[in-house]
């Protein structure tokens, strides 16, 4: 059974005007447990709106979303508990940090989830240790560097032990080293603990590296979903979504245009390197 079944959802921001401009227009897809899904598309294509539907922050005008087989729109569904299972880490950590100390901030979600204060703080400390930022626990979250803030914000969501982790542009504004560290960490969560990951990104070369599925959105519609190489090498789709090709695809295209043969299903850095070495 898929963990998410999204069925024909539609959503519009201006409900009071009769313009039928849909932010989400008839979107359907399934996400399986342990998937690592990259959500790509130009800004304004509806990616952020879509993820806000997945934990019930926004309610679709029509259509249905099933989480582990249950419709989150059915009357007796506990939306609040869904938010603890589906954790969203938004782009700007500054929008969620508010407490006096880091540990207070991290514990917020755990307390809201219903843990006792002692339990919540114990759990928060564990999470900080797990993320190697235990030394920050008594700092004020406002005095941290950008990278540290991101980690604390992530800890604040992670403490709720979500089954699905959703990230809105986790790599924006990060320097390359921090980015690589971040993705490796998430990948290991995905591998070792089976956490389902969905993330919005503009960096298509990283998509090839980490994701096992890609969803392309354009103008409120889902225009393609599939394995990274299937999606990214589909010229028609990339053109429709108005996306820059990742370097790996450009290299493959160039190599082919020079009359050589190259396997364009293997697009990770090391696979591509191996293919190039053989030429």
């Amino acid at each position: 059974m898929p963990i998410f079944e999204v069925k024909n959802i539609k959503y519009t921001y201006d409900k009071y005007e009769n313009s039928l401009k849909y932010a989400l227009n008839d979107i359907s897809f399934n996400i399986e447990k342990k998937d690592f899904v990259a959500l790509i598309g130009k800004s304004g294509s509806g990616k952020s709106t879509l993820i806000s539907h997945l934990n019930g922050l926004y309610k679709a005008d029509s259509g249905d979303i099933l989480y582990s087989g249950n419709s989150i729109y059915s009357k007796d569904y506990d939306l609040n508990s869904l938010r603890f299972k589906v954790g969203i880490v938004f782009q700007y950590p500054d929008y969620q940090l508010f407490s006096e100390t880091v540990i207070d901030d991290v514990a917020f979600g755990a307390i809201k989830k219903g843990m006792s204060k002692d339990e919540a703080y114990k759990k928060s400390l564990e999470v900080l240790k797990f993320l190697n930022i235990e030394y920050l626990k008594d700092e004020s979250p406002f005095n941290l560097s950008g990278g540290e803030k991101r980690k604390v914000a992530f800890a604040g969501v992670f403490v709720m032990e979500p089954e699905v982790l959703i990230f809105d542009e986790p790599d924006a504004g990060l320097d390359t080293m921090s980015k690589i560290n971040f993705y490796n960490f998430i990948k290991s969560l995905n591998n070792d603990y089976g956490t389902t990951v969905i993330y919005i990104t503009h960096n298509l070369d990283d998509v090839v590296e980490y994701a096992n599925k890609v969803i392309v959105m354009s103008d409120g519609k889902l225009i393609k979903m599939g394995k990274p190489y299937e999606v990214l090498s589909d010229e028609k789709v990339m053109k429709e979504a108005d996306l820059e090709l990742p370097y790996s695809i450009s290299i493959c295209n160039k190599v082919k245009s020079m009359g050589y043969d190259i396997d364009n299903t293997k697009l990770t850095f090391s696979d591509l390197l191996d293919s190039l070495k053989k030429l």
């Binding site: 320097d175 390359t176 080293m177 690589i180 070369d205 370097y247 290299i251 850095f269 591509l272 390197l273 190039l276 070495k277």
Partner: peptide, 20 residues
Amino acid sequence: AGIELPYITRMAKELKSFGK
């Protein structure tokens, strides 16, 4: 300095050390 090389440059460097 905590700076990673650009994608293409990294690829070029690897290929160079391989003998290309």
